[in-house]
């Protein structure tokens, strides 16, 4: 399997693979198939593809009906619409009956940098984590996307998969086995633990290099299963460090940072800093890197957060909302 560097392309190719493996896999899209890349499935299996028009609520509940009929539906839209527009349908029609519906939230986070706040999702993880029974996934690259998708035929109950629009660095170790729930160590270090998801994993690896230059050894962990979070693996990962930084391309309320703190409350732990969007909506920008930098989602911000803790000045002074 040669993974595609573009995550949504990798997603579309993996979906086609699943269609080959299992005749019950069906796909639905709300007129964004060219963006979400569900169009690849449409080309391969036209009879199992349902163009639902610009009607996300009906798409979600129709998927529930297909699941009741024994199908494994994958539904697609931009993350903001898949989770927000159709929230009540995900809640009542899919999560309460614990149906095997897979929700692809594409162009997630700020990755649709040009379209601005209406099309960027800063709260999708919060919404999906709050739904009982929902599994919440955010792969780090095309390879992990493919490995994750492979698990979604058999994985019980509903699942949300957060797909980035961009080309992302290939970070998942090629020969590393994968299972849903896995926390992957990408760099070892005993002074600090950098826990990251999605695009912030690469930036945290860069942060670890910045820290190493100052004599600080930071471990970097890719957390791609945001729920259920493997609390034991997390606690092992942070054992012995003096600082924990959680980095995510998401609102600070309810995302990975919240999930980590929920898990760490069980043990005495070192100070935790969160690098995230400070409770505001997105903006249009000229490129992805520009918008990430605007919201402080940089390697430097992750490194600075670790240093603040280690210097005993972890109050996030000077941070402000950016609108």
């Amino acid at each position: 399997m040669t993974p595609h560097p573009n995550m949504r392309e990798a997603y579309g190719l993996a979906l086609v693979e699943l269609g080959r493996k299992n005749p019950h896999v069906v796909a639905l899209d709300a007129d964004l198939g060219k963006s979400t890349r569900s169009v690849l499935f449409q080309e391969a299996f036209p009879e199992r593809y349902f163009q639902m028009g610009i009607a996300e609520q009906n798409m979600a509940a129709t998927a529930a009906g297909l699941a009741f009929a024994g199908k494994i539906p994958f539904i697609h839209s931009f993350a903001v619409f898949a989770t927000g527009r159709a929230y009540d349908q995900l809640r009542n029609s899919i999560c309460i009956p614990r149906l095997k519906v897979r929700v692809c939230g594409s162009s997630s986070g700020l990755s649709d940098f040009g379209d601005g706040k209406t099309h960027q999702s800063v709260e999708d993880v919060t919404l999906m984590r709050a739904l009982p029974c929902m599994t919440v996934l955010a792969p780090v690259d095309g390879l992990e996307t493919a490995k994750m998708m492979d698990c979604l035929i058999d994985w019980p109950g509903p699942a949300y998969i957060r797909i980035n629009r961009s080309d992302l660095p290939m970070l998942y170790p090629a020969d590393e086995p994968y299972h849903i729930g896995k926390i992957t160590c990408l760099r070892k270090g005993s002074d600090a633990a950098l826990l990251a998801t999605g695009v912030m994993v690469g930036r945290s690896l860069e942060a670890a290099k910045l820290l190493a230059a100052k004599g600080i050894e930071a471990g970097v962990y890719n957390i791609s299963t945001l729920k259920p979070l493997d609390a034991e693996a997390l606690i092992r990962a942070v054992a012995g460090v003096a600082a924990i930084v959680v980095a995510e391309e998401h609102n600070i309320i309810g995302g990975l940072g919240s999930a980590v703190l929920e898990a760490l409350r069980a043990i005495p732990h070192p100070p935790v800093e969160l690098v995230a969007i400070e409770d505001c909506f997105g903006l249009s920008a000229a490129c992805y890197d520009e918008i990430l930098t605007h919201f402080g989602l940089t390697a430097q911000a992750v490194a600075d957060a670790a240093i603040r803790i280690l210097q005993g000045s972890s109050k996030p002074e000077g941070r402000r909302k950016r609108r």
Binding site: G65, F68, D88
Partner: peptide, 14 residues
Amino acid sequence: GMGLSIGLGMALGF
């Protein structure tokens, strides 16, 4: 408002 959509999904699956 959700029942007809669920019914549609079932009908398509059948």
